[in-house]
Design a protein around this nucleic acid. Structure first.
Lengths: 203, 203, 203, 203
DNA sequence: AATGAATGAGAGTTCATTCAT
DNA sequence: GATGAATGAACTCTCATTCAT
């Protein structure tokens, strides 16, 4: 996973490993606060407590560390949300659990959106891939749920993207922009809509 | 509407008016292609066919013209989608019409997403305001529809944001990233989901 | 002459013209003293009395101004030496006059060698072209002199390059490295060798 | 010979000797390809297959290894050309043999010119010394030939420099810039000029 | 003797903004 | 109002050299 364009500059000692890790963490902070262009390499090294030049021992450029970060966060999101879905008894319950987990993750990693959004400019490939693979995962999962009769039989790609968009915006609104309120209240309400739709409900 | 920081520099002649308009159009192109930081004032004036210095006759700064653009595009979206919704017989039908109109608008203004997304960094106020007011509009509209019995009675803010996110992502996927396929097929499918939900459907 | 790769950034006002000229003169000094790599753009602008950024109004890069300079000096040499040769009664006399003029030029432009030599690395094209065209000019001139019986009948390319090398090294030794001695003593002695050769002379 | 600033860091083991030799060979390549400033110490150690830090075990600085190289090549040239001259029956024949040997050497060591030329900036002392000692050797040799009646009686320093320049440029043109053609054709033609001069020849 | 991580001064280049014409 | 030259702070990246292991 995320084996793509690996940095040509791998640390060869454990001291180097620590420095590289410090730079990545510092970069997440810096990019999260200032965006890609607003961030500076010297800002990253200052946060990491290393000399400016050390940055280039581990990363070829500002672009490269950003790309590494995008792939990293993309993997982290999947790592946090995927298991929650899988643990649920059925697909609809999984939807509820997944959204709850996602909003929780976002609250703990408020820089996620800024980094992913900036990728649109800096690394469009990763940007599209992030959402594309998310939607594709949804679609596959929904289709097998449809076969088991857990969701409507005619689920399609449009539905998958619609759900992704829903989740992303709820994460933005109730995760990034607000810490108030219970995460599960939000996902419960969204889940109700997603399950039964907008039409007038019986009783 | 959008009374915020109005430009202190209004054109006084019709020649000036044309120059200002040319700069705004050029800025939409430049920011759409390169993002806020990647865009340059000289790039904007080059596209507009004016001298570099003339820029500052009409705008105080690069930031200012960007903010003006965000507000402009935000208003344009509402202007394109709102009437389509209002013309529909009821709220659910309006939803369908609105989404169709939105994807159509996006296809004609592919720079929309890049500009709005960049606003997250350059003008966070406008960015949040854009989505907040959109969601609020939805909520108001849904509530009165609920009173008329057109949609479920318990509509709330979470539902409004969920629908906004759905629309945004369908616009991204089927508007910006793809020109293929009929706009109304997409919105029909999304509408079906939104109306009846994900649960297994009768018959 | 020297129309090659023209800078895309031509001054449009006379003030701009003056600044560009000041930068070129400053660059000749800076490159002459420190060589291409040792020279810095900020050193050039400091000598020229302009701001650092102004440099880039007129030249795209440090490389570009260097190339402009090489072509310029190459043309200056031809401009100084060519007429002296043409004014002579015959080709052999022209050789004497040309060498004298060349050493004189070198004494007044000691930076010539350092700049031309550095071109070997920075702008190999211009470097080879400089010497190639010089040798070619010699060859053409020698051949027509041969037809008039002024020089030996079998002059060839090797002879032309030999003479160029002779002149270049005499210029280096008696022009750049030493101001002492009369220019015409040197060229007279060299001329004697060139005319009659190294073999024992009669009487 | 050339006792100047000897390296303060002599290898003490045979393993060290090999490493030092590898660094010198690597430096010849690196400097020949990229020039002094373009070359990097890490480029040299990469070619030599050693760690960056090891460089400083054998050389005090980038400058020092360059100076060592210039002296080395200067000696190599003399070593290749000198014997050829000495083996000739008389001075004029020696001239022919020497030029042939020189062009041959240059063809096998195309980096020679770039390295010597760069010395003009990095180590002017060695640069001037290289040519000065070459010219001086010529002059001494020519004077004793004059006493033996092998060449004209009035040979002087100017003649010596003229011949050096001739040889250098023929080496550049027919050695570095071109591998075509027979080396001895070039030197034969040059020799003819040098022996009899440019004036119209009898018969 | 060998390694490679760390350092930081210094380079080239960009560009928002000002201002004289 | 329009023009484009001028400014200089800020930024990314390089690399000779040092030093702990």
């Amino acid at each position: 996973m995320s084996a793509q364009t690996e940095s040509a500059r791998k640390p060869r000692t454990s001291r180097g490993e620590r420095t590289r890790r410090a730079l990545l963490n510092a970069a997440a902070e810096e990019f999260g606060e200032k965006g890609f262009q607003g961030a500076s390499v010297s800002g990253i090294t200052a946060r990491a407590g290393t000399a400016l030049g050390s940055f280039y021992t581990y990363f070829e450029s500002k672009d490269e560390i950003f790309r590494a970060l995008v792939r990293d966060m993309s993997a982290q999101v999947r790592g946090a949300v995927g298991p929650a879905i899988l643990a649920a008894p059925d697909r609809l319950a999984g939807e509820l659990a997944g959204l709850t987990a996602f909003i929780g993750f976002v609250r703990a990693h408020k820089e996620l959106y800024r980094i992913i959004d900036e990728a649109e400019f800096v690394d469009p490939e990763s940007y599209r891939e992030h959402y594309r693979s998310t939607a594709e995962g949804y679609l596959t999962s929904l289709r097998s749920a449809a076969e088991r009769g857990e969701v409507r039989a005619d689920v399609d790609e449009v539905h998958a993207w619609a759900i992704v968009g829903m989740n992303v915006f709820l994460g933005l609104r109730y995760g990034v922009w607000s810490d108030e309120g219970d995460t599960s209240d939000v996902s419960a309400s969204a889940f109700e809509l997603l399950k039964n739709g907008l039409k007038p409900q019986d009783s």
